Amino acid sequence: MGLRVVGAGFPRTGTTSLKAALERLLGEPCYHMREVIGRPGDAVVWRDAYAGAVPDWDKFLAGYAAAVDWPASSFWRELSAAFPDALVLLSRRDSAERWYRSMDQTVLGAARADSADGRSPILGTPEQARAAAEMMRAMFGRAFDDPDDRDNVIAAYERHLVEVRATVPEHRLLEWQPGDGWQPLCDALGLPIPDEPFPHKNTTAEMRAQRDGIGGH
């Protein structure tokens, strides 16, 4: 069937919560950066995609009903074209400043640490580890001119929101932020609202604890 939801949001916009929610709603897995951690061979595919060798999306994402978070959301244009019936889900925070603070304390901070000590964010074979490091560099390079410059990062985030809104037809686009919960997702997908709380996962504190080896993955 292919993807029913194509995520177009940057990290730290509730994407881990969305992964859990979409899996609950759609009954199938949702692709997320966490998938790359569990499937280190995927890093090779993503690295090559950033270099222009786009995979067969149907084959590569077979078995997934949705994809959110980087690296998949870096390819929102390609994925929305490959799956023309999919909902394009633009997750965002209520302010660019709040998003940046969360991003700086987690994703950007972790990337700086990995770069400084030469670590790969993903374990696997030596080739997979190299591919993961190259994927990460390409991922940040596509998003930001200078990931160490606060104003540049915020401008890139705001520019991205404008670009998605201007590109995706209104009938395919859903903007969502973490406080919105189930209702907009269920309305857009034509599904009933589950009789359970919306999942709220991977807060800044939780992500930093995991990074420090205190929490699980």
Rank of each mutant, 00 (worst) to 15 (best):
residue 146 D to L: 00
residue 146 D to V: 03
residue 148 D to I: 02
residue 149 D to C: 11
residue 149 D to F: 02
residue 150 R to P: 09
residue 150 R to Q: 06
residue 151 D to H: 07
residue 152 N to D: 13
residue 153 V to F: 01
residue 153 V to P: 05
residue 154 I to A: 03
residue 155 A to G: 15
residue 156 A to G: 14
residue 157 Y to E: 00
residue 158 E to L: 12
residue 158 E to D: 13
residue 158 E to K: 07
residue 158 E to F: 06
residue 159 R to I: 05
residue 161 L to Q: 14
residue 163 E to K: 11
residue 167 T to L: 14
residue 168 V to M: 07
residue 169 P to A: 13
residue 169 P to S: 08
residue 169 P to N: 11
residue 170 E to N: 12
residue 170 E to W: 07
residue 171 H to D: 15
residue 171 H to V: 13
residue 172 R to C: 03
residue 172 R to D: 09
residue 173 L to C: 00
residue 173 L to K: 02
residue 173 L to I: 03
residue 174 L to D: 03
residue 174 L to E: 06
residue 174 L to K: 01
residue 175 E to V: 15
residue 176 W to Q: 11
residue 177 Q to C: 09
residue 177 Q to V: 07
residue 178 P to C: 07
residue 179 G to P: 02
residue 179 G to I: 01
residue 179 G to V: 04
residue 181 G to I: 00
residue 182 W to K: 05
residue 184 P to L: 09
residue 184 P to R: 05
residue 184 P to I: 11
residue 184 P to G: 10
residue 184 P to N: 04
residue 186 C to D: 13
residue 186 C to Y: 07
residue 187 D to R: 07
residue 188 A to Y: 04
residue 188 A to D: 00
residue 190 G to C: 02
residue 191 L to T: 14
residue 191 L to K: 13
residue 192 P to T: 10
residue 195 D to T: 10
residue 195 D to W: 01
residue 197 P to W: 03
residue 198 F to T: 11
residue 199 P to D: 06
residue 199 P to Y: 01
residue 200 H to W: 01
residue 200 H to V: 09
residue 201 K to C: 05
residue 203 T to L: 02
residue 204 T to I: 08
residue 205 A to Q: 07
residue 206 E to T: 08
residue 207 M to K: 14
residue 207 M to P: 12
residue 208 R to Y: 02
residue 210 Q to I: 12
residue 211 R to V: 11
residue 211 R to L: 12
residue 212 D to E: 13
